[in-house]
Computed example of a mutant assay.
Amino acid sequence: MTDQPAKVTATDVARLAGVSQSAVSRVFTPGASASKATIEKVRAAAEKLGYRPDPLARAMITGRTRIIGLVVAYLENQFYPVAIEHLSRVLQSRGYHVLVFMAENSTEKVPQVVQELLDYRVDGIITASVAMTNDLTARCRAAGIPVVMFNRGQDDAGLSEVTSDNVAGGRRVADHLIATGHRRIAHIMGWQGSSTGRDRARGFTEALREAGLQPFAMIDGMYSRDEAAKATRALFSGPDRPDAIFVGNDHMAFAVMDCLRFELGLSVPGDVSVIGYDDVPLAAWPSYNLTTLRQPVRRMVDATVEILLNQIEGETTPSRIRIEGPLIERGTVRERTGT
């Protein structure tokens, strides 16, 4: 039987580098301070000895895993891969790593995933478009694990959340369509079981009402491409048709445009204008060139990380952040005309 080589320890690195063991610990602890000379000596010694710090051992000592659990409902919508990339980069720059779990918005799957994250002893949890029940919130509080909701709100004063200002965004879309001469404006809404879908619809209808208009139609598209295409067919099945459609997110808006152009033979924006919400990368592609309300994803991510890390450090006051985004005008809304 071959003897296993002895494991290299921080003590070995300290001895070779001529520094204390605490100096080695500081060099390999994110956020800790050490002089440039100490860092160079320790890293050179570690490389020569083949030393790698043991994060599990450190977690047992500090009580921190420096892992953030991220719970996501789905990735089909381009907005979420973009947001996850930004979240990962920002958290890594702060010395944390991300553990991603997929979970449907169901009473069975979300509690199971949250319990698994608690079992992994994550330092905090970010939920992206996933609902949290009062029971789950209480469970996380009891475990001392802070939770921040990203791109979703909830009627729970104890939860922190970061979203774009969806009410203001819905109003801005309606104002733009009214200003460009549209009067028969339909809304294929985001899922009305979500705060984002409800708030965008609310801002949209408020702006129309102030202009003396009523929505041509309000249909729940469920944040689904198939449902959005079905809604489009219904809107254009008779002689009375909308002259514009506000779609609750870009993911659905692409399905709406494909249906209008390739199934119904209509021109966008010649026959009907279309506005989306999110401004995902695909919206700028020439094939769609979609006018859309941009979610300020980088600022949303920065705010989410700041709130979560502050809570990990002991901040107890929940935060509710709403960040306004601009309307990005491209080619799916007709030019401004008179009323």
Results as ranks from 00 to 15, higher is better:
Gly238Cys: 06
Ser25Ala: 14
Arg141Met: 11
Gly265Trp: 00
Pro81Asn: 08
Leu327Asn: 02
Asp240Trp: 09
Phe236Ile: 05
Ala234Pro: 06
Phe262Lys: 14
Ser129Gly: 05
Ile125Gly: 03
Leu70Gln: 01
Lys7Gly: 10
Arg58Glu: 08
Asp175Cys: 08
Val268Met: 06
Trp285Ile: 08
Lys48Pro: 00
Ala186Arg: 04
Tyr74His: 15
Leu56Cys: 01
Val147Phe: 00
Leu327Met: 03
Ala17Met: 06
Ser129Tyr: 10
Pro55Thr: 02
Thr29Ala: 10
Ser25Lys: 12
Pro146Ala: 01
Ala201Asp: 08
Gly124Lys: 07
His176Asp: 03
Arg334Leu: 03
Asp155Val: 11
Thr127Glu: 04
Ala46Cys: 01
Val113Cys: 05
Leu290Tyr: 13
Thr337Ala: 15
Pro326Tyr: 00
Ala179His: 09
Gly212Ile: 02
Ser22Gly: 05
Thr196His: 01
Thr133Pro: 08
Val90Ser: 09
Thr316Ile: 10
Asp271Ser: 09
Ile145Tyr: 03
Ile68Ser: 10
Gly153Met: 13
Ser33Asp: 10
Ala186Gln: 05
Ile126Pro: 11
Thr339His: 14
Glu108Thr: 14
Gly193Phe: 07
Val110Asp: 02
Gly212Pro: 00
Met102Phe: 14
Arg198Pro: 01
Arg152Tyr: 04
Asp278Ala: 07
Val148Tyr: 09
Glu116Gln: 15
Arg171Thr: 11
Ala283Trp: 11
Ala37Phe: 10
Ser287Lys: 14
Pro146Met: 00
Met300Arg: 03
Ser319His: 15
Arg225Cys: 10
Arg26Ser: 08
Ala14Leu: 06
Leu87Asn: 07
Ser33Ala: 15
Ala255Gln: 07
Ser106Trp: 07
Phe216Asn: 01
Ala45Pro: 13
Cys140Phe: 02
Gly158His: 12
Val256Lys: 05
Ala244Asp: 03
Gly270Asn: 05
Arg334Cys: 06
Ala179Thr: 09
Arg171Asn: 06
Trp191Glu: 14
Phe28Met: 02
Glu104His: 12
Val122Ala: 10
Pro296Ser: 08
Arg202Glu: 13
Ser88Gly: 12
Asn166Phe: 03
Thr137Gly: 13
Leu290Phe: 13
Leu264Val: 01
Gly221Ile: 00
Ala229Tyr: 12
Asp240Pro: 01
Ser160Ala: 08
Val130Ser: 07
Ala73Pro: 10
Gly69Arg: 09
Glu40Arg: 14
Asn249Phe: 04
Ser33Ile: 08
Asp243Val: 04
Leu70Lys: 02
